[in-house]
Design a protein around this nucleic acid. Structure first.
Length: 193
DNA sequence: TTCCTGCCGT
DNA sequence: ACGGCGGGAA
C-alpha cells in the first residue's frame, strides 16, 4: 500500500530506496508513518521524487488506515471492494490506478489495474484507442474472467496480467517503441515501429 | 536530456 | 486541457 503511493510517476528502483530507508530506521509500518513528523518522512522518502506531496499522501492514507481499520489488513479485507474503492478514491492523492493497485495487490480484491502502459499497449496493438480508465478496466475484467486456469484464481490472473503488461511497457512497448524481440509482435498492428 | 506503473488544482 | 511536483538513473 505504501509502495503503491510512492511509485506514482516514479521508478520502482527509487521506491525500493525509499522503502529501504524506512526499513533501516524501523519505520516500515503504517503506524510508524502515522506517528512520524511529516518533515522527517519527506527526508526519508526523498529518492522517489515528488516527496513533499507523497509524504502528505502517506500521512493521509495512514490516518485513514489506522483510524478506520486499526492498521489491520485482514480486517480491512472483509469489506466490499466497491465500498473500499470509493473510500480510497476520496483520499487526497489516491486516484484510480493507486486505489486499484492497493485493492488488488494488498487486499487481494478482484479488480483490474489500468495504467499508462496498458492504454499504450492496447493502442499499439490496435485493440482499443480508448483512454477511458473504467472502460479499459471493464474490458480486461470481462475478458479475463472468462478463462479458468488450473490452480489460479481470477485475482491471481489479474495480478499476473498487470505485471506482464508493466514488463512489456518497460522493455518493449516503451514511449518510443522497441519492437525487437517483442513477444507480441505477431499480433501487433504496429510491427517494426 | 529524457523518463519513471499519477494525481491534483485551476 | 494543462502545469506542477522531483530525485535518480540511463
Amino acid at each position: 500500500m505504501i509502495g503503491a503511493i510512492l511509485t506514482q510517476q516514479a521508478s520502482w528502483k527509487n521506491v525500493e530506496k525509499a522503502i529501504n530507508n524506512l526499513r533501516k530506521g524501523g519505520y516500515l509500518s503504517s503506524f510508524s508513518i502515522y506517528k512520524m513528523p511529516v518533515e522527517q518522512l519527506k527526508q526519508i522518502i526523498k529518492p522517489v521524487g515528488f516527496y513533499n506531496m507523497k509524504a502528505k499522501r502517506l500521512k493521509e492514507f495512514t490516518n485513514y488506515f489506522i483510524e478506520k481499520y486499526n492498521g489491520n489488513i485482514s480486517y480491512m479485507k472483509r469489506f466490499e471492494t466497491e465500498k473500499l474503492r470509493e473510500e480510497l478514491l476520496a483520499l487526497n492523492g489516491i486516484g484510480k490506478e493507486t486505489a486499484d493497485s492497493i485493492l488488488l495487490y494488498a487486499l487481494d480484491k478482484e479488480t483490474f489495474v489500468v495504467d499508462a502502459y496498458t492504454i499504450r499497449m492496447l493502442n499499439r496493438l490496435g485493440i482499443s484507442d480508448s483512454k477511458d480508465y473504467e472502460e479499459i478496466k471493464k474490458l480486461f475484467e470481462s475478458s479475463l474472467k472468462k478463462y479458468k486456469f488450473d490452480g489460479y484464481s481470477t485475482v491471481d490472473i489479474f495480478k499476473e496480467m498487470h505485471a506482464l503488461i508493466v514488463e512489456l511497457g518497460k522493455q518493449y512497448c516503451k514511449k518510443t517503441p522497441y519492437c525487437t524481440d517483442c513477444p507480441l509482435s505477431e499480433i501487433c498492428e504496429k510491427k517494426g515501429v
